[in-house]
Lab assay of single mutants.
Amino acid sequence: TIDEIIKALEQAVKDNKPIQVGNYTVTSADEAEKLAKKLKKEY
């Protein structure tokens, strides 16, 4: 679900690790936030 994706992003940001979500690779908190907002609009 979208919530699980967002939790995974938040965890990756805390661990400061890049995370791959679908076609996106998120490497920073800023990118994670942008991706989360984008995904919320889509779903």
Rank of each mutant, 00 (worst) to 15 (best):
T1P: 09
T1L: 10
I2G: 02
I2F: 12
I2C: 14
I2Y: 11
I2T: 04
I2D: 02
D3L: 15
D3Q: 14
E4T: 06
E4A: 10
E4W: 12
E4K: 07
I5S: 00
I6K: 02
I6W: 03
I6C: 09
K7N: 05
K7F: 08
K7P: 01
K7D: 04
A8M: 14
E10G: 03
E10D: 07
Q11V: 06
Q11M: 10
A12M: 14
V13S: 09
V13F: 10
V13Y: 08
V13A: 14
K14W: 03
K14R: 14
K14I: 13
D15H: 07
D15S: 09
N16H: 06
N16Q: 08
K17T: 11
K17V: 12
P18T: 05
P18Y: 04
P18Q: 05
P18F: 07
P18L: 07
P18A: 11
P18I: 08
I19T: 10
I19L: 07
I19Y: 03
Q20G: 04
Q20I: 14
Q20W: 09
Q20V: 14
Q20S: 13
V21W: 06
G22V: 02
N23M: 07
N23Y: 02
N23D: 15
N23W: 04
Y24T: 13
T25Y: 15
T25C: 15
T25N: 13
T25A: 09
V26E: 08
V26A: 09
T27P: 06
T27Y: 10
T27C: 15
S28I: 04
S28F: 02
S28K: 00
A29H: 03
A29P: 06
D30V: 13
D30K: 09
D30A: 13
E31C: 09
E31Q: 08
E31L: 03
E31K: 00
E31N: 00
A32Y: 03
A32C: 07
A32H: 00
A32L: 10
A32S: 02
E33W: 05
E33G: 06
E33S: 09
K34M: 12
K34V: 11
L35P: 00
L35C: 13
A36F: 06
A36K: 05
K37F: 00
K37H: 10
K38W: 12
L39F: 02
L39G: 01
L39S: 01
L39Q: 01
L39Y: 03
L39H: 00
L39K: 00
L39N: 01
K40H: 08
K41Y: 11
K41R: 10
E42F: 09
Y43T: 10
